[in-house]
Design a protein around this nucleic acid. Structure first.
Lengths: 202, 202
DNA sequence: GCGTTACGAGTCTTACCCGTATCGTATTGC
DNA sequence: GCAATACGATACGGGTAAGACTCGTAACGC
């Protein structure tokens, strides 16, 4: 855990050092409870402590409150950015679109919808949310720019709108199950191809 | 209010009749509190009663609990379906896309994100959610089919994927403010045009 | 060994909320 | 006028949680 929201890394400390196992157990318990269906605000420090096999004080010693803990827990969940190969624009887009809402941690899918209400409640939380998604947007932006430079994509397209076009369908399907009849597996490919070719008769 | 979740309309009753003003005040207070940032589960009957200037008993006399009240309140918020003119496929699509997440009540925009976590918690709530959006999907489906029949749209497109393509970008922008730099006003037009024409060099 | 700090477990106070019940009052039909 | 039902206000018991605190114990540097 590179940075923690509340406690600065002690420069040099006497006494017993903080248990790394406890750190891990607390974060894991938080994510587990969320993934099991608890909403963010129904989540209690007491439940987390019990699940982690940890005293409440051990949590309060590390984080100022539930918000700070959640911040760190969600950071852990973020996962790694997909790395486009750089050969085919279409393949890169399929990879990036397929990675939307699909983190390394399988719990992510259950947790993500819980964040929707929180995102626009305060400027801080909105910023946190943007910090997570904007590097992913940047990745897609670069692929699209590359496609334009290589002459594969039209030069007059609006890159930002195109990103929304590629991201939106996948996101509403993964997070909201917008249309239960839509096959999530093949959706990335089908979305990319549809966006590439358009639907109009030529 | 044509149907209420809990109380059947009394056939004929002695005594003082229920106050219609109280009905209205309770629903309004509920929507106001949600729009002001309260999440669904942080919303308390006591807070609603206080806001509405009403005793708690007056609420419990009408609804069995918070869920039943919320159901009625959200029904009120739904708004009316947009009616495509039927002349130009493009114009109809712009109208439908522009109507996504844009209800008659301005509070709707703030309340909608709160529903995301709830939607997939139970089969009942998922069904309720689908009942709201499926007629809107059907409307768009018909426009696309008409476009195919008229030869304006290609016959080999996947209609369901196309609907996701049109809906997704608008939804993530309106509900999540996915990209703060995107102009929401002109987005419907730009999304529709992009989907129609595709982004690939021909 | 000693001071220091963390540990799990538990206690305590405070606060909020639910759902019900009970006030005195207001409004209806008969 | 009278029974019936509504009203707002308030009180109640029961539940849950936040946070600060206290235990006795465990792990570190010196």
């Amino acid at each position: 855990m590179p940075d923690m929201t509340s406690t600065a890394d002690a420069p040099r400390s006497p006494g017993r050092p903080r248990s790394i196992r406890a750190d891990e157990a607390i974060i894991e318990a938080t994510l587990d409870l969320l993934a099991e269906g608890s909403t963010i605000e129904a989540l209690s420090i007491e439940a987390i402590a019990a699940r982690a096999g940890v005293g409440k004080a051990t949590i309060y010693r590390r984080w100022a409150g539930k918000d700070a803990l959640l911040l760190d827990a969600l950071r852990r969940l973020k996962g790694v950015l997909a790395q486009p190969a750089g050969h085919s624009v279409r393949d890169d887009l399929v990879l990036l679109v397929g990675a939307i809402g699909k983190n390394v941690d399988p719990r992510a899918a259950k947790i993500m919808p819980c964040l929707a209400p929180v995102v626009n409640r305060s400027a801080d939380q909105f910023q946190l949310y943007q910090n997570i998604i904007s590097p992913r947007r940047q990745l897609m932006r670069e692929v699209l720019r590359r496609g334009i430079d290589e002459g594969v994509l039209r030069a007059d397209i609006d890159v930002e709108v195109t990103m929304a076009l590629l991201t939106g369908p996948m996101l509403i399907q993964r997070v909201l199950q917008w249309n239960p009849d839509l096959d999530e597996q093949t959706l990335p490919e089908r979305v990319v191809d549809a966006v590439l070719e358009g639907i109009q008769v030529r």
